[in-house]
Write a protein that binds this DNA or RNA. Structure first.
Lengths: 114, 114
DNA sequence: TGAACATATAAGTACATTATTATATATTAA
DNA sequence: TTAATATATAATAATGTACTTATATGTTCA
């Protein structure tokens, strides 16, 4: 019926991960910008370990990937994942969350990771 | 960016509901066939109350709708819902689950509701 | 009306999830 | 090497979830 079919159990796991508003917002942000943990901490007003645990779950599931850049670890969408097409078509139905990054930038907190 | 944008908190709730393999399979089945509770009980080998609770959550969220037909209550996808476009594009990435209904039919358990 | 069937609701339990705080690890720069 | 910064991991507590069994409601048909 459609390209990029993923097994239903696996899809359910991915959707469960995305069924959390913090993680869903993260992924929507990552759709247009790479980010580090410290930025997410600012954006979500949440403890750093909470953020680390969220991104770790998504990394384990292959939704995001990381690369170290000095003392920072930059997270980005894993566009090679077998679930990426599904994730992408989902994200297309969500409103942009870029305003959150813009707010960060206005507070001078975005530059910290670049 | 795309038509039918739904608020991110609301989307997360919908995805949380679909992030359960039983409910996700139900919705995929409903994409091509209406079903009653007793059929789901057979398909998922799960107690009737468990099935009722799953469909109720999805009904409350507007994902599915019901109509009574004699002693049966037939569930179907709610294609008028504001989240339907997102749900539909998700389902397009999942393998058909119609074989489950075909198995039912072979056991003579499908006819019960028609 | 009453028995049989389909579904819903209630209560309880086991387990999963998401935060927190405390602490460990890794990198940078003085 | 040491202090500062960024991130990860561990332990724990509060809450949420998904089943179960027992029971109530609603419909059909003899």
């Amino acid at each position: 019926m459609e390209e990029n079919v993923v097994e239903i159990d696996h899809s359910a796991k991915i959707l469960k991960l995305l069924g959390d508003k913090t993680r869903l917002t993260m992924v929507k942000i990552l759709d247009t910008n790479d980010c580090c943990v410290c930025e997410f901490v600012e954006i979500f007003k949440m403890s750093q370990p909470a953020i680390s645990q969220h991104v770790r779950k998504m990394k384990d599931a292959g939704i995001v990937k990381e690369k170290r850049k000095g003392q920072w670890i930059i997270y980005s969408l894993n566009r090679e994942s077998d679930v990426f097409p599904m994730v992408q078509s989902l994200l297309n139905h969500l409103p942009s969350q870029d305003f959150k990054l813009i707010e960060l930038e206005e507070k001078g907190l975005r530059i910290s990771c670049e």
